[in-house]
């Protein structure tokens, strides 16, 4: 019994220590004046985490918009309210689905790749050798990836929403015959720029920070063996997904739950 309590306490301390370490890690990586070289490294990472994630994010956005329109239509038509389809698709996407689903896809596509890449650099002593050359790997390797993730995910989320709304249009208007004017008009009159688009973007930025932070920290902090890399990659996806869904509830409660 005592052993169990001791074990629990030790685990608690380990978790706190890891949180402290990751906080320091974030502070040391994120601060600092970007140099010309830093911009180049950041652009390169924007390509890897951002541009290469475009396809999966946009295709998913298209299908989710189409499914939303299809499901929404079958329910709304019973009440004769299919004119509200545009409003429903847009609000669902902007407030919830785009930030959350794009973040989950980003964690699976880019987050796991970041962890594996940094982890492999650690396992092959590339990070250590960089330190011995007198270059701080936090600034050279971690910072560009962190900032690239932080900028790329909100942009991908915008793309997700745009394509999703178009997917809804294809199904709702082109296929099911909802009046085009009411699809766009309903959207225009009901979507608030700050309240809906703005809050969705704030969510996306929070998710971007959390997912990228988890991914680069897991890569930097892992045990440098094949098993260590595989565990850390899995942890990145699991922790990021849980963090995104948990934070989404908190943010939704604060933004739309009547607290404000």
């Amino acid at each position: 019994m005592i052993a169990h309590i001791l074990n629990l306490g030790r685990r608690g301390c380990d978790v706190l220590e890891a949180l402290g370490r990751s906080g320091l890690f974030l502070a040391q990586s994120a601060v600092g004046v970007p140099s010309r070289e830093g911009w180049y490294l950041w652009l390169r990472q924007m390509h890897f985490v951002g541009v290469l994630s475009i396809a999966i994010v946009l295709v998913s956005g298209l299908f989710i918009g189409m499914v939303l329109a299809l499901q929404g239509y079958t329910i709304l038509v019973d009440f004769g309210a299919e004119q509200a389809l545009g409003q429903m698709v847009a609000l669902s996407l902007l407030r919830e689905l785009s930030p959350v689903v794009a973040a989950l896809l980003f964690a699976g596509r880019a987050g796991s790749a970041l962890t594996a890449e940094i982890g492999l650099m650690k396992a092959t002593e590339q990070l250590t050798s960089m330190e011995m050359i007198g270059v701080d790997p936090l600034r050279r390797v971690v910072a560009p990836r962190l900032w690239a993730g932080f900028v790329a995910l909100p942009l991908l989320t915008i793309g997700f929403s745009v394509v999703g709304i178009y997917g809804g249009y294809l199904v709702g208007v082109e296929w099911l015959g909802v009046f085009e004017g009411s699809y766009w008009g309903g959207m225009q009159s009901s979507v608030a720029f700050i309240g809906d688009v703005g809050n969705g973007m704030i969510k996306s930025m929070v998710f971007a920070l959390v997912v990228t932070w988890i991914a680069v920290f897991q890569g930097y902090d892992l045990v440098p063996t094949a098993e260590g890399i595989s565990r850390a990659t899995t942890r990145t996806v699991v922790y990021s997904s849980l963090a995104v869904l948990g934070l989404d509830f908190v943010l939704t409660a604060v933004m739309f739950g009547g607290f404000s």
Binding site: L120, M121, T124, E125, Q126, T128, S129, M130, M132
Partner: peptide
């Protein structure tokens, strides 16, 4: 300068 066992070249 340090020479690592694996070489540790930037891949």
């Amino acid at each position: 300068g340090m020479l690592f066992q694996s070489g540790a070249l930037f891949s």
